[in-house]
Design a protein around this nucleic acid. Sequence first.
DNA 1: TGGCTATTTGGCTATATTGCAAAATACATA
DNA 2: TATGTATTTTGCAATATAGCCAAATAGCCA
Lengths: 108, 108
Amino acid sequence: MDKKKKNLFEARARILKAMAHPSRLFIVDTLAGQERCVQELAGMLEVDVSTVSRHLSVLKNAGLVKDEKDGTKVFYRLSVPCVLNFFSCVESVLETRAREQADLVGKR
Amino acid sequence: MDKKKKNLFEARARILKAMAHPSRLFIVDTLAGQERCVQELAGMLEVDVSTVSRHLSVLKNAGLVKDEKDGTKVFYRLSVPCVLNFFSCVESVLETRAREQADLVGKR
DNA sequence: TGGCTATTTGGCTATATTGCAAAATACATA
DNA sequence: TATGTATTTTGCAATATAGCCAAATAGCCA
C-alpha cells in the first residue's frame, strides 16, 4: 500500500470516526431536521453543554456541520445531507444481524 | 432521550465505529472486489497478521463481513454491500472541505 | 503422532477518547 | 462598566483502542 493510498484511507476513516459516537450520530440526525444551538442539543442528549460543544467541534472539523452565530448563541446545521443515507444501511446491518441471531436460537 | 432511542443510537454508532479505522476501511473496500484470507490482507496492509485478525473480528462482530474456512485458511467477504455507498459520500465531504480551504487561501 | 501452515487469543504498552467541572471567552444589554 | 447568558477551552481521571510479540488453537498431511 503506497503512502498516497494510505493517506486517503486515513482521511476517509477520520470522517467516519467523527460520526461513530452515539451522541454525535444523534446530533447529525437531529440537525437533519433543523438547525439547533448547543444548549438545545445538550438538553435533548442530557449531557453537559461542554461535552456537546466538543462533539460539535469534532463534527465541524470533519466538515459535517457548519455553525453560525446569532447573538450569544451558535446554531449548527448539517452541511452534508448524504450522510443521512448511512442510516438506512446501518439499519439493514442491524436487522440482518438480529434475524440471523434469531435463526441461531430457532435452530438449536 | 428515552432509553430505547439511546440504545438505538448506540447500536448504530457501533456499526460505524467498526468501519472508522483506516485498515478496516481498506479491508471493507478490498473485500468488495473479492474474498480474501487473513494473510493476504496483512500483506496488503503491511501490518502484523494478528492485528488484521483482530480488525476482521471487529468487522465480523459488527455484522459487516462473513468468514468461511477453507483448510487452514479463513476467507472473509463483505456481507453488507450497501456500506460501499459510504465511500462516495465521504469523498464528497473531503472534496467540499478541500474546496473551501482553497477558497480561504484564495480570499486572503 | 509429529510437523507445518494459518489464524486467533492473551499479555502488554502506548496512545486516543470521553466526560465533567472549572475557568476563560464572546456577546448583548441594563 | 457591570451583569447575565451561551459557548468554548483547559485540566484531569476513567476507559477504550491499536499494535506487536508470544503462546495457544485448528486443520492438513506425511
